[in-house]
Design a protein around this nucleic acid. Structure first.
Length: 542
RNA sequence: GCGCCCGUAGCUCAACAGGAUAGAGCAUCAGCCUUCUAAGCUGAGGGUUAGUGGUUCGAAUCCACUCGGGCGUACCA
């Protein structure tokens, strides 16, 4: 519909030339009195044209040509808004679209043929996923789904590093626990991994091998067993949330494939690196950053920047049209270096979209829980799923904008009470399912013949919400904002519940009942499609 | 010190690219089930949008500064 209004304005701009070079902004007004779509164009032009906004608006309205079957009224209001009112035949059209397209309604092929890579989670296999990773995982997966919904072919990717100091400490942590099981009196260092899962892995090794591993190297079987166990655990947790990765990208492959080396050589050839104090420095100052950074330590080991740049180079070479990285706010200082590196290598960094989400604050019994993988005072994502179920976990992590901190109150999430918006939505869906079960028993079906009978306020509000769906999910995808979906769905469900309280389906006069069945059928489809994007279930009964 | 993010009702959060009277949920209070699921609905109270100044027809939104909170700021990842 917005497209249609844009097109009639485009036609009009042939006649009113001042419309040509301005951005037309259309929005959905908050109240029904202000119509279905509104534009502030007259006010924006007032200064430039040295005319009063209302005069401009009048001129636009008097000259604009539109189709009566789509728009029934255009009026000027307030300081100069132009408000458009949709006609009933448009409403009929959109309901019909929703009902006939069903599960496919809302899908768009706008980006058909384009490929996207979404990298998320990317936790190293040093411990189970925590609630903190949960937000990253759910946001990443939902963004991937949203991109698929607008036509992208999406690859979900998990980047990990199973080498380095962290992993050595992990292997040695298991080894020491193993010795403890054998009865050795060993002091377990404070900066080693304290979690119980370490002892579990050691226990398992003991059951399989007895005391035969005494002489093994910490980086041998201890490390590899730990990595295997932990990775299986992580994958299992992700699959409980319906998250499946297409690629697991091992940082180590960047070394074995010579990609790190080739980036180093390229930097050197371009004069973007130099040696100082036995280390290799990346000339970031030349690229506009504040200071140069080390990319290869004096020990010969690269810092994280180098593999990160090589990794992104690899992604570019794989030919994606869009590369999305999802990080927690603790990475906010590192990605500019990576982007600068990509740009220096000649890649279009506009293809990379870095999304930084703020941390999850866990509240338990009214207190903030500080978490650290190393010390074992974390709540695992698995425990959270056990407590509240995957629907609630997925919904809660999608509920807030990425830029704000997410306050996860465990007591509240565990409650399963009506404070929980997930149930509010699911209840709306189930209520509709229930009505439709009963109407079908009575052989009552939807009809699009008399939709103009849907004239009461709750019905009008519900209709209005329905035809906003397509635009909402488009905006959610293009702006990478999953929380728009949850906000929208809550408003939609509220509109439905209000309708339910005031308007009866069964027992109304047949033509009205048929129209209302069309309305709630469409509502049910939209709720289901919205929840499906979030991978939250839409039950027929509760 | 510097960089990024945040500050909106008692609490948790919305508010589309600057738009019309700043909205929901929870909590509090008062109502609504002989009719489609009360996990619901209706109403009331609750706000100087942290503060100060600026930009303009118009600011929670943009700019500057101040205050407060989070995360960073390594030859850790």
């Amino acid at each position: 519909m917005k497209k249609y209004i844009q097109s009639i304005f485009a036609d009009l701009s042939e006649e009113l030339s001042y419309l040509k070079n301005t951005d037309l902004i259309f929005m959905v007004p908050k109240t029904n009195e202000h119509g279905d779509i509104s534009t502030n164009i007259a006010m924006l032009l007032a200064k430039e044209l040295k005319k009063k906004p209302k005069q401009i608006a009048e001129e636009i309205i008097s000259k604009i040509k539109y189709d009566n079957s789509a728009i029934c009224k255009i009026e000027i209001a307030g300081p100069g808004f132009i408000n458009f009112f949709f006609s009933n035949s448009y409403i009929t059209y959109i309901l019909k679209e929703i009902i006939t397209k069903g599960n496919d309604f809302g899908k768009s092929d706008k980006n058909a043929g384009r490929k996207a890579n979404v990298e998320f989670v990317s936790a190293n296999p040093t411990g189970p996923l925590t609630v903190g990773h949960g937000r990253n995982a759910v946001l990443g997966d939902t963004i991937a789904t949203l991109l698929e919904n607008i036509g992208y072919e999406v690859e979900r990717e998990y980047y990990f590093n199973n080498a380095g100091r962290q992993m050595r400490v992990l292997g040695d942590s298991v080894r020491l626990r193993y010795f403890q099981i054998l009865g050795d009196q060993i002091e377990f260092p404070e900066d080693y991994y304290q979690g119980k899962y370490i002892s579990d892995i050691a226990e398992k090794l003991f059951r399989q091998h007895g005391d035969k591993l005494r002489g093994e190297d910490p980086e041998g079987i201890f490390k590899s067993a730990a990595e295997l166990e932990i990775f299986n655990d992580i994958k299992n947790t992700l699959s409980r949330l319906n998250i499946g990765m297409k690629n697991y990208f091992n940082e180590n492959s960047l070394y074995t494939d010579g990609k790190i080396k080739s980036v180093l050589e390229e930097f050197k050839a371009k004069g973007l690196s130099y040696e100082k104090e036995n280390a290799v420095w990346f000339k970031l100052t030349e690229l506009g950053a504040g200071q140069d950074k080390v990319i290869v330590k004096s020990t010969g080991e690269p810092t994280y920047r180098l593999p990160d740049i090589a990794y992104h180079k690899d992604k570019f070479e794989r030919g994606y049209d869009l590369i999305v990285d999802i990080f927690g706010s603790d990475h906010n200082a590192t990605y500019p270096d990576v982007l600068a590196g990509c740009k220096a290598l000649g890649y279009d960094k506009a293809k990379i979209k870095v999304l930084i989400h703020q941390f999850v604050t866990i509240m338990d019994k009214g207190e903030v829980v500080k978490m650290s993988t190393r010390k074992a005072n974390f709540i695992t994502l698995d425990e959270l799923i056990d407590d509240v179920g995957n629907d609630v976990v997925r919904y809660f992590f999608n509920m807030r904008s990425m830029t704000s901190h997410l306050n996860f109150d465990l007591d509240l999430a565990k409650k399963h009470s009506d404070e929980n918006p997930v149930f509010y939505l699911q209840y709306a869906h189930a209520r509709i399912a229930s009505i439709l079960r009963m109407t079908s028993e009575q052989n009552l079906n939807y009809s699009l013949e008399n939709l103009n009978m849907l004239s009461s306020e709750p019905e009008q509000n519900l209709l209005k919400k329905l035809y906003q769906f397509e635009e909402e999910i488009m905006l959610a995808a293009e702006n990478f904002e999953p929380n728009r979906i949850t906000n929208y769905l809550e408003e939609l469900a509220a509109s439905f519940h209000r309708f339910y309280a005031e308007c009866r389906v069964i027992g109304s006069e047949t033509r009205l009942a048929e129209a209302r069945i069309a309305l709630i059928t469409a509502t049910q489809i939209i709720i289901k499609n919205g929840l499906t994007l979030l991978k939250v279930s839409a039950p027929e009964k509760m």
